[in-house]
Nucleic acid binder design. Structure first.
Lengths: 218, 218
DNA sequence: GGAAAAATTAATCAAACGTTTAATTAACAC
DNA sequence: GTGTTAATTAAACGTTTGATTAATTTTTCC
C-alpha cells in the first residue's frame, strides 16, 4: 500500500533524502548513468526504499523534476500576477521576473539547487522521450502564460516571434544556471559563475534587447 | 551466406557506420543510456568491432564528437579569415558566420546532422567530466578566436562582456538545433523547427541585439 | 599463390543493473 | 498490551552491461 507521511523525528525524511541524492546523481551522470544503487547509498537508505516510494527509476526521475518545477512555477505565477496588478510593466521588469526564480534556484547551493540547475539545463534541449515529457508536463503551461505576458508588454511582437523570444531567453538563462565553469575559463577568471546579480543583469539585458529585435520590420 | 557481391561496398567503412550509429544513440539516450550492443546492432557490425576500432565507450564518444567538431571548426575558421580579409565586418555578418555552420549541421538530416545537433546541445550545458572535457578540447579554441573577433567588431565591449555575449549566442543557436518540437508546440504550429533560414535569421537578430546591449553604459 | 596484416566473428567474462521478494523492525490507534 | 500498518532490511532475481578472448575470414602486397 502507499506509505503515509511519517517523517519521524528520529530519521530525517527518507523520501527527501532520496530525491536530493537522485537529483545530484541525475545531474552529474545523466539518467542512464545514474544508478539506483549509488543513489540509495548516497541517500543512506536501503536500495529497496527507492522502489517502495517511487516504484521505478522513471517515476523517481519525474518526482525529482516535479519537486523543483512546482516551486519555480509558483514563484513565476506569483510574479506575473503581481506585475500586472497595476498596469503593464516594462519588458525588463517582466523578463527579470521570469528568469530570476530559475536562475536563483540554480545558485542556491545550500538547498542543492545547483544540481537541479544542471539537470534542467541538460534535459531542456534533450530529445529523448522522457525529457520531452517532463518538459511538456512541467514547463509548457507556465511557458504559455509567460509568452502571453510578453505579448501584452510588447504588442507589436507577433505570436511566433514571442515564442522564439521566450525560448531564446530560457535558453540563455539555463546556460548561466549550468555553471560548467566555462565562462570563467574563457574569460581567464574575469567572469564568475557564482555572481548571481551580475549574471541575472547580463541575461536580462541580453534577452530584452534580443526580444525587441524580433519585432517585425526592425 | 548471403551473396557477397555488394559486401565490400556494404561494410567498406565500418568505422563510419559505427560513428553514425553511436551518434544517434548518444543523442537519443545519453551516454549512459546508449549501449555498445545496440550501437553495434544498428550499425550492422559485430559488437567487438567497436572495441577493435575505438578501444572503449569513452573513446567512441570522443570520436563521435571530434568528427563533427572538426568540420564545424574548419568552416568557422574559414569564415573568420574571409570576413576580416578586407576590413572589419558588421556584427550581424560575423555572428551569422559563427552560428550558421553550427545550425546548418543540425539541419542536415541527410548526413545525420540532426542527431549530432541534439547531442551537442545536450552536452554543452552538461556538468559531467566527460562533457566538460570534450567541450574544452573541441570548442574552447574556436570560442576564443570567435570572442576575439567579436571584440574587433565591437571594441566598446569589454572582454568579460564579449565572453558572455558569445556564450549566450551559442546557447541560443544550440537551442534551435535541438529541434525538440517545443517551438512548434508552443506556437500551435506557427513555428517550424526545420525552416533553417528563418531560424538562422531569428537567432542572428536576437543575439546581435543582445550583444550590443552588453556594452557598458547603455 | 602464399605469407602477413587487417577485419570480422561467436563465445564468454565478471560486474553492474533495475527490480522483486520475504522477513523484520518501528510507529501508531485503541 | 494487542493488532495493524508503515518503514526498513538483506538477499536474491534475471538481464544487461562493457570488455576480452581466441579463432576465422577477408584483404593486401610481393
Amino acid at each position: 500500500m502507499q506509505p503515509q507521511q511519517a517523517a519521524t523525528a528520529h530519521h530525517k525524511d527518507s523520501r527527501a533524502a532520496i530525491l536530493d541524492s537522485a537529483e545530484a546523481a541525475f545531474a552529474e551522470l545523466g539518467y542512464g548513468g545514474a544508478s539506483i544503487r549509488a543513489i540509495a547509498r548516497e541517500a543512506k537508505v536501503n536500495q529497496a526504499m527507492i522502489h517502495y516510494y517511487y516504484q521505478n527509476k522513471d517515476q523517481l526521475f519525474t518526482a525529482v523534476i516535479e519537486r523543483r518545477a512546482g516551486e519555480i512555477n509558483a514563484r513565476r505565477d506569483a510574479a506575473l500576477e503581481r506585475l500586472f496588478e497595476d498596469g503593464v510593466p516594462t519588458l525588463e521588469v517582466l523578463i527579470e521576473a521570469l528568469l530570476r526564480p530559475t536562475i536563483e534556484i540554480g545558485h542556491d547551493d545550500a538547498r542543492g539547487g545547483a544540481a537541479y540547475a544542471r539537470l534542467i539545463a541538460s534535459f531542456n534541449n534533450a530529445a529523448d522521450e522522457r525529457s520531452r515529457r517532463v518538459t511538456a508536463d512541467n514547463y509548457d503551461p507556465i511557458a504559455r502564460r509567460s509568452i502571453d505576458a510578453i505579448r501584452r508588454v510588447l504588442p507589436e511582437l507577433d505570436h511566433a516571434a514571442a515564442v522564439r523570444g521566450y525560448l531564446f531567453s530560457i535558453s540563455v538563462a539555463l546556460s548561466v544556471m549550468a555553471k560548467t565553469g566555462r565562462a570563467s575559463r574563457l574569460s581567464d577568471g574575469l567572469l564568475d559563475d557564482f555572481d548571481t546579480d551580475e549574471t541575472v543583469a547580463s541575461a536580462v539585458a541580453f534577452t530584452c534587447a534580443g526580444i525587441r529585435a524580433l519585432v517585425k520590420g526592425t
